[in-house]
Design a protein around this nucleic acid. Structure first.
Lengths: 329, 329
DNA sequence: CTGTTAGCGCATTCAG
DNA sequence: CTGAATGCGCTAACAG
């Protein structure tokens, strides 16, 4: 509504609309003028830029397809709020104190941090230094911490209920070993569903695996290497990438999905539809996650002393071909 | 070697080493001092920041696993040269003129642009405006353009030779429809290998497919929907993601890889090892691509009037389980 | 060789 | 309500 137009400019300058427009534009064009975001930033003490913290090297989250879609959600939300996004790479995750100056050099107004290992001292350091920060797909008890996460417990429970409703009675929960906060939450949801169905807790097995080479495949092998009558018939994987590799490992040993084993993933990222059969999975609301994260961060930037706020978003069960009825013995 | 240490500082200030160190550090710490990158940038007219151009929304390259690894290479190289990386999102690819001011607002010193469609007016606009720019995995005839690309023709020829050496005589080249410059180059390499092997050009079929939903799967279906004696036994896919979806489609119609059909991908990104069987593919030298791109861009930044320079890097054939001998009729 | 000063290009303030 | 002055925090060129 209050968008200033050439009309007002002309009126104010006391000249015709055309004159103003032409003069201003010509002058600007001829001189090759374009405003400096840096000077503006220095004067306003605000760059309208959000920093995304990354770690360089092998373990960069940017390798993961999940990170890609999540990041995309952030990008869209930032654009909608007229914010830029910049990457801030720390030396390593451990040396938070060494990276801290880089995090507060004014290049960006606040930080977005994706699922950090639980023990990381980066977050306390940032919160202690008063750097506006929002954790994405992560949570923390610190009252200063703002974060946005999905309903891990409920989502996992829903996914497991889906398997149970198909008649499965021997289930397994497969996670890459990590100290990420969502892993235990999803594990609890897994067991909650099992117990609610009246099955013994022993109906669910938990396997933690590494993420190097084909450790996932070997974990699946170990899990399946037993008489068919004891073998799990349903596998709940903590991420689609894990599920994809698990399916490959199952195929290698002649087990068919979903005929012999049903597999559920989590995320609904690109990996979910690039495998055969396509994955049944819990879809994360990427755009909403991005929108909430950006909102919370802008609040934090507006008032850095503010208490942390949280957003917990639901996921959605997407049923595809990787799950089916439990095999009849 | 010439790294100034507390030692020199002490000598210069005429005080003991400990004194200097303690005083300086205490003062800085007590005041919570940290230098402002923005003020520094304004004064030096240099942000030591490289911009990566992205488009928001669905078609963002960040969705692709290939982009992830490539991006990671850039990140590492930038860190090694003490450069930051920021994202610059244009409105859309088309409206270059509208986005131009955002590209030259001083926030970053130059731009890295990933494989743009051939007709994009963004690149001429940027070159015309004198913005230091380097194209990544792309090339352009404009003498002002700097770019780094892989040997598409030779790589594709190598991949095809691998298939031919396995006895395949009916091949297909599968590409997502796009105006990216590497597609025709790879297609030519494909035919060059076929003709060098003494086979008729008709031994190679070319299929362009869309990238929405399962268009790839449907293209594979169309390709394979013929008597076995005419069916291609080898598929060269222009990217690993395409190959992965092709394998899924083949599995769906009961064709086994590599028993019935051999499949070669391109990139060696995360998708290559997440399928069963794992993909034979051409690995791109991500770290070298990143290093060259950053180098060329820094040259361009140092002297924007400089003529464009190029780097063409080799790829490497990685043989995995998706290729095997041609089936005997 | 050290300490001082004048911009860098904006936004914001203050007088007019 | 408009136009000129001041300062953002640093670097570079300068004089002492």
């Amino acid at each position: 509504m209050s968008v200033v137009s050439i009309r007002e400019v002309a009126a104010r300058a006391g000249v015709s609309r055309a004159t103003v427009s032409k003069r201003v534009r010509r002058a600007a064009q001829e001189l090759g003028y374009h405003p400096s975001a840096v000077a503006r930033g220095l004067a306003r003490k605000r760059m309208d830029t959000l920093g995304v913290v990354l770690t360089p090297g092998q373990s960069s989250p940017i390798d993961s397809p999940f990170f890609g879609v999540l990041f995309n959600g952030i990008l869209k939300a930032a654009a909608a709020r007229h914010q830029n996004v910049t990457l801030v790479v720390g030396e390593t995750w451990e040396s938070a104190d060494k990276s801290l100056p880089r995090f507060r050099d004014g290049r960006c107004d606040g930080l977005l941090i994706f699922y950090q290992p639980e023990g990381s001292d980066l977050i306390p350091a940032l919160l202690g230094a008063g750097v506006p920060t929002v954790l994405v797909n992560d949570r923390r008890d610190d009252p200063r911490a703002s974060w946005v996460d999905v309903e891990n417990f409920a989502s996992s429970r829903t996914a497991t209920e889906h398997l149970l409703s198909l008649g499965h009675t021997r289930l397994a929960f497969l996670a890459e070993y990590s100290a990420l906060t969502f892993v235990p939450a999803r594990q609890e949801g897994f067991f909650a569903a099992i117990e609610a169905a009246g099955l013994p807790r022993s109906a669910g097995r938990v396997v933690y695996t590494g993420f190097h080479g084909d450790e996932i495949g070997r974990s699946v092998d170990a899990l399946m290497d037993c008489p068919a009558a004891q073998r799990p018939t349903a596998l709940f994987c903590v991420a689609d990438g894990v599920a994809a590799q698990a399916i490959a490992a199952l195929a290698r040993r002649g087990l068919r999905v979903p005929h012999d084993v049903s597999v559920v993933g989590f995320n609904d990222d690109a990996a979910a539809t690039r495998v055969h059969p396509e994955l049944t999975t819990m879809r994360q609301p990427y755009d909403r996650i991005g929108a909430e994260a950006v909102s919370l961060l802008l609040e934090q930037i507006a008032d850095p002393t503010r208490r942390g706020r949280h957003a917990v978003l639901p996921t959605e069960l997407i049923v595809r071909g990787s799950t089916g009825p439990a095999p009849q013995d």
